[in-house]
Simulated assay, not measured.
Amino acid sequence: MLVVIDMQARLLPHLDGGERLTERVATLLRAANLLDVPAVVTEQNPVGLGGTVNALLPVMRTANVIGKHTFDATLEPAFVAALPPAPATLWIVGAEAHVCVLLTVLGLLQLGYRVECVADAVASRRAADRAVALERARQEGAKLTTVETAIFGWLGSCRHPRFREALALVK
């Protein structure tokens, strides 16, 4: 399952690399749609921070959107209810790396999930915060990966019937 954390319109302009982050997350959502990988999207305090950025809405067609007020999404019962049973693998992307992403990663690890933190699809306001968050996630047991690695992992083989379509997403 792809877990998209807090890609909200009022937050993204303040992030280091927010525009690139949006592009990377959109690529993963397109691939998830193409390859039938389920997705869940969180929105932190949507009344205060607004909804998910408009650029992602067209590619969120099958995603379950969950509002939350906790920084660790696993403290939100609706989020946990949307997840597959542990020990499934969850690919985590979004913002901010050192707050909601990291705290959710830690919560998911405590619940027994295998977590892949997509390093080129997370961001923070400051690059140093992102770097520390990725290192902490790795130290705690999350695997670090990239958008392309996740997509090729979902494909499994160049013989996958949707290989050429997926390949076009990363070219």
Score class of each variant (00 low, 15 high):
residue 61 R to E: 13
residue 41 V to N: 04
residue 101 V to K: 11
residue 10 R to L: 11
residue 156 G to E: 09
residue 82 A to D: 04
residue 98 H to K: 01
residue 163 F to P: 10
residue 123 A to W: 06
residue 19 E to L: 05
residue 129 D to Q: 08
residue 98 H to T: 01
residue 108 L to A: 14
residue 168 A to E: 13
residue 79 F to Y: 08
residue 12 L to P: 00
residue 78 A to Q: 05
residue 103 L to A: 15
residue 130 R to H: 10
residue 158 C to V: 14
residue 121 A to G: 02
residue 157 S to V: 05
residue 46 P to R: 02
residue 99 V to T: 11
residue 152 F to A: 03
residue 163 F to E: 02
residue 143 K to H: 12
residue 72 D to K: 09
residue 150 A to T: 13
residue 140 E to P: 00
residue 71 F to C: 10
residue 79 F to A: 03
residue 43 E to Y: 05
residue 97 A to Y: 01
residue 110 Q to D: 15
residue 169 L to G: 04
residue 147 V to F: 04
residue 144 L to N: 03
residue 74 T to D: 08
residue 49 L to H: 09
residue 22 T to E: 14
residue 129 D to Y: 12
residue 111 L to A: 08
residue 73 A to N: 03
residue 83 L to H: 08
residue 146 T to P: 00
residue 124 S to L: 00
residue 15 L to Y: 08
residue 12 L to C: 05
residue 65 V to R: 02
residue 125 R to H: 10
residue 79 F to R: 01
residue 127 A to Q: 14
residue 89 T to R: 15
residue 142 A to G: 12
residue 164 R to G: 11
residue 125 R to F: 02
residue 86 A to M: 08
residue 7 M to Q: 11
residue 161 P to C: 07
residue 120 D to M: 09
residue 29 L to Q: 15
residue 75 L to V: 06
residue 47 V to E: 14
residue 163 F to W: 14
residue 63 A to F: 14
residue 30 R to E: 04
residue 11 L to H: 09
residue 107 G to T: 04
residue 82 A to E: 01
residue 135 E to I: 03
residue 75 L to A: 05
residue 156 G to M: 08
residue 30 R to G: 05
residue 41 V to E: 02
residue 42 T to D: 03
residue 22 T to L: 15
residue 167 L to S: 11
residue 118 V to S: 02
residue 127 A to I: 07
residue 75 L to R: 11
residue 134 L to E: 01
residue 126 R to W: 15
residue 41 V to T: 07
residue 124 S to C: 01
residue 116 E to M: 14
residue 171 K to N: 15
residue 94 G to T: 13
residue 42 T to Y: 08
residue 14 H to L: 15
residue 59 V to D: 13
residue 8 Q to S: 07
residue 44 Q to E: 10
residue 83 L to D: 07
residue 109 L to V: 01
residue 109 L to I: 13
residue 77 P to F: 14
residue 35 L to K: 10
residue 103 L to I: 10
residue 165 E to F: 05
residue 42 T to W: 06
residue 132 V to F: 11
residue 150 A to N: 02
residue 148 E to H: 03
residue 107 G to D: 00
residue 56 L to N: 04
residue 64 N to K: 14
residue 83 L to W: 10
residue 1 M to G: 02
